[in-house]
Design a binder for these strands. Structure first.
Length: 410
DNA sequence: TATCAGCGAA
């Protein structure tokens, strides 16, 4: 019942789509570029405004940015549980876009996966030959397998892999096997995943890839089987699959959790020696390792050194460093890090921000605490502000409380 | 030339 209510189409949206596209845009707005839409969407959490941004994209199909913009919009709608609107949006794209291509349909399939609507993804896959007047290729098949994983249903991949490749007479390639191996890893069947890789090589005569090895390495490390992982790393290199940054980062992750900062630094040295430039994820692991070893000054140094390494902090960097700073009572640096996150539009989650505000109040920095709350409230959509109002009351930061404080002082 | 696979954390 609740589901029905939640998934009832939003009338304004349904009306909006065709109208927007059939009406000539006013002279002032000739449409924005997909790249601009993408950056707007990244900071737009309101689903209706997201749809509005998306529909003003001039070139809505060809670029990767345009496809990414579509996926971001679907994610916003799905987060609001507006699945009928997701359907309206994606079905409209399928029907109204001239010169529909298989890569574009692949994006629709993946978007349905992101929204958890696997039945719709499967229907779309079925429609491919009718939509493009050509048989399926691996692109839509692989996109569908990947949609299963995005929909958090990796357990369905093995059966569908066999069933659909048979039904559509498709010969799976290394990408298909890559998704299959990942699905097996995600469902805890790492042994079966390794078996699958071996089958792929010996029976299907497909070359193994760095990507598939990386999937397996990650799974083995996360299961605590580091010896097996190290052996597989050697196998990967031996089979001519050169490790890239992501495979190194999987190792860095393991060392950051189980080793010392020196071990992580040593591995970073190896990465650089291989002619690869570590990225923000690499340095965030290093920073985390320093934090866990109680080396807060070193962690701060890593943070401050990011820019000269050509990296900029991401949401995870901010979250980890800020929470650790607050726990250690370093609210001054905490404020600095918060301001940076504001500048980059990557303000950490409520729990982390709560630590900063509480720390500031504890340190008698009421004015700063209030400013932080105001700035965060301004950035977040209405539906997330509730927690802040409650926290303000608890900490005595709300307007009423302040007036009372002032009265008490005078 | 890329589209369809792999790392953080939500």
């Amino acid at each position: 019942m609740g589901v029905l209510a939640a998934s009832r189409p939003h009338l304004s949206l349904l009306g909006y789509l065709p109208r927007r596209l059939s009406t000539t845009a006013p002279a002032t707005s000739t449409g924005i570029s997909a790249a601009v839409a993408k950056s707007l969407l990244r900071n737009e959490f309101d689903p209706d405004r997201a749809v509005a941004i998306l529909s003003s994209v001039a070139d809505s199909t060809s670029s990767t940015s345009a496809r990414h913009a579509l996926e971001l919009t679907v994610r916003r709608l799905a987060r609001s549980r507006r699945f009928s609107d997701v359907e309206a949006l994606l079905e409209y794209r399928k029907s109204a876009v001239a010169g529909l291509t298989e890569p574009y349909i692949a994006t629709v399939i993946l978007s349905y996966g992101t929204a958890g609507m696997l039945d719709h993804a499967l229907c779309t896959l079925d429609e491919v030959p009718a939509l493009i007047s050509a048989p399926h290729s691996l692109v839509s098949f692989n996109a569908f397998l990947s949609a299963c994983i995005r929909a958090k249903k990796p357990n369905r991949v093995p059966d569908l892999f066999a069933e659909l490749s048979e039904k559509y007479a498709i010969t799976p390639d290394v990408v298909s096997y890559g998704v299959l191996v990942n699905a097996l890893c995600l469902t805890g069947k790492t042994d079966k995943a390794i078996e699958t890789l071996n089958e792929m090589v010996t029976v299907k005569h497909l070359e193994p890839t760095t990507v598939i090895y990386t999937t397996l390495l990650d799974s083995l490390y996360k299961k605590g089987k580091s010896d097996e992982a190290e052996a597989l790393w050697k196998e990967m290199v031996g089979n001519g699959c050169a490790p890239d940054l992501i495979s190194y980062n999987v190792r860095v992750m393991h060392r950051a959790v189980h080793g010392k900062p020196e071990d992580v630094l040593e591995l970073i040295g190896e990465i650089e020696a291989a002619g690869i430039k570590p990225d923000t994820i690499t340095y965030t692991y290093l920073l985390t390792c320093h934090c866990n070893a109680g080396q807060l000054e070193e962690a701060k140094a890593v943070y401050r050194g990011l820019r000269e390494k050509g990296c900029s902090p991401n949401a995870t960097t901010f979250k980890i460093l800020l929470s650790r700073l607050c726990v250690n009572g370093d609210v001054d640096m905490g404020l600095e890090v918060f301001e940076d996150s504001l500048t980059l539009n990557k303000v950490p989650d409520f729990r982390t921000m709560k630590l900063l505000v509480e720390g500031l109040v504890k340190g008698a920095k009421l004015q700063e605490a209030k400013e932080v709350v105001d700035k965060v409230k301004k950035r977040f959509p209405e539906n997330l502000v509730g927690g802040w109002n409650k926290l303000e009351k608890e900490l005595g930061l709300s307007a009423d409380e302040q007036v009372r404080d002032q009265l008490e002082v005078s």
